[in-house]
């Protein structure tokens, strides 16, 4: 809505159809995220498509996929003592993984400042599907202690970006872009495992084809 309003207010036309490959990231301040990654953000890769409905406005839809995991060490049942064979002496570990797929739809309003520079704003609704896996022996496909839980959540993404337009031929152009903003997701409930929430600084960068 915001981008639509902005577009109506802007005189110069810039919106085009697009198909882009992009890399994204979304803030992950939740301590539960520490079990899956050492980063403070959810990094993902995906695609974005846009359909111009107005000289300055396009409807965009995207998909971002992320896979993160970690090895989690657990202290031993008794006081830890140094063991040459096992550095953590009496402890154990398990592996974690969190697969997320974000599906977003929204609008993008841009303006042509220069031929090659099209700033824009965007606002999107995001749906996320998460799948968490815990396994103490990932090399064994049949071990009993394979825990898997899935969940759904939703949120939004809002931001602004810069399209860099490189004309190729006619209306077709190559358009790398960078987009920064804020995203918020409701806690992703993974049943009895608990929840993981993503929110905070969000960004996208990619390259696409404009036509």
């Amino acid at each position: 809505m915001l981008s639509l309003l902005c577009a109506l207010a802007l005189p110069a036309a810039a919106a085009t159809n697009e198909l882009s490959f992009e890399v994204g990231w979304l803030g992950a301040p939740d301590p539960a995220w520490d079990l899956f990654s050492n980063d403070n953000a959810l990094g993902s890769v995906g695609l974005r498509a846009g359909f111009a409905v107005h000289p300055n406005v396009a409807i965009i839809a995207g998909w971002q996929h992320a896979a993160n995991g970690a090895t989690v060490d657990v202290p031993g049942a008794e006081d830890e003592t140094y063991d040459e064979e096992d550095y953590y002496g009496g402890g154990s570990s398990f592996e974690t993984a969190l697969y997320t797929d974000q599906f977003s739809v929204g609008s993008k309003a841009d303006v042509k400042v220069f031929k090659w520079l099209h700033p824009y704003v965007t606002a999107q609704l995001v749906g996320m599907r998460g799948l968490a896996r815990l396994d103490d022996d990932s090399g064994d496909d049949e071990n009993l202690t394979q825990v898997q839980r899935a969940g759904l959540t939703g949120g939004f993404l809002a931001g602004g970006g810069l399209d860099f337009i490189i004309k190729v031929r006619g209306k077709v152009a190559i358009a790398p872009y960078v987009e920064l903003g804020y995203g918020w997701m409701a806690p992703l409930a993974l049943k009895d495992l608990g929840t993981v929430q993503f929110s905070g600084f969000a960004g996208r960068t990619g390259v696409g084809v404009r036509f």
Binding site: G46, A67, V72, D73, V74, A97, S138
Partner: peptide, 26 residues
């Protein structure tokens, strides 16, 4: 890109490292 969701599910990424301060179970 379209094949990404269908990647072998039990090949865990395992890129990170973490630790717990307590036992997971007694």
């Amino acid at each position: 890109l379209a094949l990404l969701p269908g990647c072998a599910p039990w090949d865990l990424p395992g890129n990170g490292y973490s630790s717990l301060e307590s036992l997971t179970w007694d």
